[in-house]
Design a protein around this nucleic acid. Sequence first.
DNA 1: ATAAAACAAACGATCGTTTGGTAAACGCAC
DNA 2: GTGCGTTTACCAAACGATCGTTTGTTTTAT
Lengths: 198, 198
Amino acid sequence: MLQPVSAKLRAPRADNRLPRILDEAARLFRAKGYQGASVRDISRSVDMLPGSLYYHFSNKDDLLVAVYAEGVRRITQAVREAVAAKTDPWERLEAACVAHLEALLDPGDYGQVVIRVRPADAPGAADRLVALRGGYEKLFRDLVAALPLPAGADRKTLRLMLLGALNWTQTWYRPGRLNPRRIARQYVALLRQQLGAG
Amino acid sequence: MLQPVSAKLRAPRADNRLPRILDEAARLFRAKGYQGASVRDISRSVDMLPGSLYYHFSNKDDLLVAVYAEGVRRITQAVREAVAAKTDPWERLEAACVAHLEALLDPGDYGQVVIRVRPADAPGAADRLVALRGGYEKLFRDLVAALPLPAGADRKTLRLMLLGALNWTQTWYRPGRLNPRRIARQYVALLRQQLGAG
DNA sequence: ATAAAACAAACGATCGTTTGGTAAACGCAC
DNA sequence: GTGCGTTTACCAAACGATCGTTTGTTTTAT
């Protein structure tokens, strides 16, 4: 019986540098964008030769997709955990926004890549990037669906507005002034409360 | 008496192709990003040789800045005109958001470049891009300052949230479904009305 | 005639990627 | 545990293509 060609015959070695490659790729994609970060930039950051990256990835597009997928995975996990601790729909949405924004701004570079790199920047990977991000956004669709809203309110627009405001925060946010938790909470508060006169 | 070296000695010729260069550069920067659109791409679109662009611009950064500045100029003018027709502060803000989003999505490519291209994409032009965009955003600062708001509301966060939601719209908007006017109005409506229970 | 606006041709640098070879970590038999 | 064959994970060196830009010359509207 034939073995599938993709079957791994042995476990990865303990000294392989794939994790470091992903880390440095994430850092450079975030700082310089997809096209601005060259394969040579990345390989230099992990003290390897440019061609050596192609043992782990068949091309630069695939490397981006790997980093992007890890970013989506981290954001998803953070939001899932934050939401699980609450029961009230508005509190769940608020917790999700806080987790989303913190994963986007604070920690590593993976989350930032998801927002910084736009699918059109990497035509060969665009479809996969859109699919990854779309899968994540289903989470917010459910959270908004659970809200008790007045009859006229459009839930789709509400979701897009909130996610847009959160994602754009990356453009102007600088660490040290406002913190992500406070920003996200204020966004939700501005939506909940009445601002304009009847 | 000496002439300043920058003095033009004669008016530009009637057949000069500078406007077309800017148009095509805007189109390509919007479609492929700053780094994704090469000087050769742009020159090919206007049927010129790559080097010929350097008669009009000393480098690619300057070309981007010229396109970007024209984009900011168009958005600013559209918002100014829309606001001038209204007196009520909320109506003025709503009109500004509609104009902003329409200038961003509908017409030519200049407005889209302002949102699509991030300053970090062009390190040599980053300072000038930030300055151009910052000057424009003062408009919204004034509009938000004029709103009658409850005591606790943070006007800065409100401005950033609204502009963020508007700017991010470019990421998911596709012509034909929702139109920009309706989207912008719904964003403002979601802020004005009370969504959550006290 | 003069200066604007382009052509023609090339510069070195850097791009993503391929190819062939090699050292060392690993699984397994003993 | 020791030795051995296998496979992982990389090096070394180059490929052609494309990048932004420069230089000298020519055309053409004014």
